[in-house]
Simulated assay, not measured.
Amino acid sequence: MTLRSDLDFSVWNPDSDVSNYKLVEPDDFVVGLRSFQHGISHSTVRGLVSPAYTVLRAAPEAEPRFYKYYFRSSLLISQLANITQGIRQGQAIDMEAFQNLEIPLPPLAEQRRIADFLDIETRRMDGLRAASQRQSALLEERLTEQLRQLTTSAGHPEMRATGVPWMPDMAASWRLHKIGRSFRTGSGTTPRSSDTAYFDGEHAWVNTGDLRDSWVTEPSKTVTSKALADYPTLRVYPPGSLVVAMYGATTGRVGILGVPACVNQACCVLSGTGAVDPEFAFFWFRAHRLEILGLASGGGQPNISQDLVRSLRIPAPAKDEQHRIVRTAREWQDRIAAQRRLQERRAGLLAERRQALITAAVTGQFDVTTASGRNVTGGVAV
């Protein structure tokens, strides 16, 4: 559960009537409004919840820590799937059916042994998963720094000032190019969503969610020729164009079009016309995303405008050297991506094994008094 003080938004008026609210004590369980999606939360604090929630309190013969794990076991999750009401986002547990579920009740001492075992083993697995996630983040930081050096100096020993505070130096033999003079810039729009004749057509339509710092070859949405005819700002850009997310959750992310595509209004498209190769600019934008976001306007979710993008200055050598740099950047990116996939796969396997270990322990598939966490039946331990 999450304390209200830990949220970054207000969800309750302190002057409102709370007489119907329910008291939650430490070690209680709370079934949420959309209980099937959000599960059953174990409380570690004393507080109040809305009358719409259901509060469960353990009987004297039940160890709350044991049931904290049991309520997360694959067995119970499969049972919940059979007693839910509603569809999609409205799914919720049928509380009457839930109350009639039969759940295991081992002797209290055994419940505590199982909980103690799982406390230790899940903490160990969580530590390993956190280490994998930290390693993945460090790999991304390493790539960013490599790309920053590659797109500002590429190892040239002689440097000169750029006059740009957040990018102070570049190779002395390179030139500083203004984006607005080296690229044609444009954007797009979103057709009226209520008109189905505009969507699921023959033209790829890129949204900011499609921008993942890579080539964009299969955008998630398409629009029709009718949409292009009715919306003059909706034009098709050629493959090789650079796309920058201007606002939304992915602000600052970039992509290179691998197919002809139009875009929505949150995307800025750069089509190469000058001395800077779009893919070279792609890696430069990747390397300096945080600095560019620092120039953005807005509050919690800053925005980048086309004017801001056009005003940016990018250092670049001659085209032949840009192409060599792009080849090197691709190799680095592919190498780091492969290493990150290994870390993500490791974290995923740990999550699966954690779930299997919990299920095996709370359903009595092995004796935790003799299990070391390394030779658990069924191959579920790590």
Rank of each mutant, 00 (worst) to 15 (best):
P165N: 00
V223G: 03
Q91N: 06
L7H: 12
E121I: 08
R148M: 06
R353W: 08
A316S: 14
P239E: 02
S19L: 09
I114D: 09
L118E: 10
S153D: 00
L295F: 05
R235D: 00
W166Q: 00
V276G: 07
R330M: 11
A337I: 12
L23T: 10
Q322E: 07
D230P: 01
A81R: 14
L234W: 01
A92T: 08
K178A: 06
E25Y: 04
D200M: 14
S153Q: 08
S35A: 07
E140C: 02
A381Q: 11
L76W: 01
T251Q: 00
E321H: 14
H203V: 11
V49S: 06
T54I: 14
Q343W: 09
S194W: 05
P157L: 00
T377G: 14
E344K: 13
T54E: 11
S305D: 12
A275G: 08
V223N: 02
A338E: 15
R289E: 10
L150I: 02
D320T: 13
M246I: 02
M159S: 03
D27N: 12
E202F: 07
A381D: 15
G258S: 04
P168I: 00
F280E: 04
D15N: 15
M246Y: 00
V49T: 11
P51E: 12
D210H: 11
S74W: 06
P317E: 03
D367F: 03
F285S: 12
A62D: 10
E291S: 07
G90E: 06
E158Y: 00
R113P: 07
G299C: 08
R192H: 12
Y198M: 11
T84W: 03
D119I: 13
E321Y: 10
S78H: 10
K226Q: 08
S372G: 12
I336C: 12
A245C: 02
E202P: 10
F117N: 08
P51S: 08
R160P: 00
S220N: 12
R330I: 10
I179N: 01
R88E: 11
L7F: 09
N303M: 10
L80H: 03
R148W: 04
R123Y: 06
L228G: 00
K22G: 11
H177M: 04
I325E: 05
S182K: 08
S136Y: 10
G155A: 06
A92K: 09
P26C: 01
I325L: 04
N375G: 12
V236I: 09
N375Q: 13
S16I: 05
A58I: 02
S5D: 15
V206A: 11
G255R: 04
G258T: 01
G348Y: 10
G32F: 01
A337D: 15
I120E: 15
W174Q: 01
A316E: 05
Y53A: 09
M246K: 03
R313Y: 15
V55S: 10
G47D: 03
V206L: 15
P191V: 07
R72V: 03
T369Y: 07
C268R: 02
S225R: 06
G258N: 01
T217M: 05
F282S: 10
A347W: 01
Q355H: 14
V164N: 00
F29M: 01
S193Y: 13
F71Q: 04
R330A: 09
